[in-house]
């Protein structure tokens, strides 16, 4: 499943004094099976952009293609588009409302008229995919669960619709470091084991560095960078223009290079930094 947007623009309240252009002429393509991150400051247009991916917002200019079909073209049912592209909003646990975990996750599949046994199957499968114990939790109230569990229930509700693409807006915010690692590990697994295409919107550059293979940077409604995670986190000027910062370890390597240590600077994780520093201290790459 691919998503392609072509010269996409979105202006809120056009023709009024409150007119504001939130997405300005953005062209990008997310290919099937990719893990992409979108980063940028609050107000840079990230949320507006992702709401176009499944037709929640209609572009005021340009076009959106899901699987090469123009989703605003004639005869296209947005309902099918929305099943293909699942959106998990920020703090999705605020949208839980049912009495039991099962009912909450089953809401979407029931709504599209699936038979009971298929609904059962999907709920069980979705819970397994996000690491929730089906038997132990199905009849519990979602409101009694921990923050991390609630969030996974909300994610399961989206997954139960069997989308091919999952778009997650700040999936780890507000969780403690351990809960954060858990949710991110689930997302990693959804991508690697179950083959979902994942679009991650996040303010945590460390999480983005760990997970995404490709990063897009939005700034003042425009796409100002789009490349491999290593390349983008190496663009210090682009990041600072966008009000962002590479992860601590990346900045450490950049600082070491400035101090004439012959280290690679395209480092994304603590593990990679460790290997590179050991290599350099171990003798290779030393200044002669």
């Amino acid at each position: 499943m691919s998503i392609r947007v072509e010269n996409l623009s979105h202006t809120y309240n056009p023709g009024t004094p409150f007119e504001r252009c939130a997405v300005d002429n953005v062209t990008l393509e997310i290919k099937d099976g990719e893990f992409v991150a979108i980063i940028g400051e609050t107000g840079s247009g990230k949320s507006t952009l992702i709401q176009h991916f499944n037709g929640l917002l209609k572009p005021t200019g340009g076009r959106v293609f899901v699987d090469e079909v123009d989703i605003w073209g004639k005869g296209v049912h947005l309902k099918t588009v929305r099943q293909k592209v699942g959106l998990v909003f920020q703090y999705p646990e605020h949208q839980l409302f049912e009495e039991t975990v099962f009912k909450d996750i089953a809401f979407g599949p029931r709504n599209i008229g699936l038979p009971d046994d298929e609904v059962d199957r999907r709920v069980e499968q979705a819970m397994k995919m996000v690491g929730l114990d089906f038997e132990a939790l199905r009849d519990r109230s979602p409101f009694e669960l921990s923050g991390g569990e609630k969030r996974r229930v909300a994610m399961a509700g989206v997954i139960a619709m069997k989308p091919s693409v999952i778009v997650l807006d700040e999936p780890a915010s507000g969780l403690d470091p351990h809960g954060r690692d858990q949710v991110l590990a689930e997302i990693q697994q959804l991508h690697q084991e179950f083959g979902f295409t994942v679009v991650l919107v996040s303010h945590s550059m460390e999480d983005v560095a760990k997970l995404a293979r490709r990063v897009m940077v939005l700034h003042k409604a425009k796409l100002i960078a789009d490349g491999s995670t290593r390349d983008v986190f190496g663009m210090e000027d682009v990041l600072s223009k966008a009000g962002l910062e590479a992860p601590q370890v990346t900045r450490l390597m950049q600082e070491l290079a400035r101090r004439n240590m012959k280290v690679r600077t395209d480092i994304l994780t603590v593990e990679e930094a460790k290997r590179e520093i050991l290599r350099v201290l171990g003798g290779e790459g030393r200044v002669s």
Partner: peptide
């Protein structure tokens, strides 16, 4: 269930 800053973890690992 907490963490330390990335550079602290790196210093520890090294």
């Amino acid at each position: 269930h907490l963490d330390v800053p990335q550079v602290t973890r790196l210093a520890h690992e090294l």
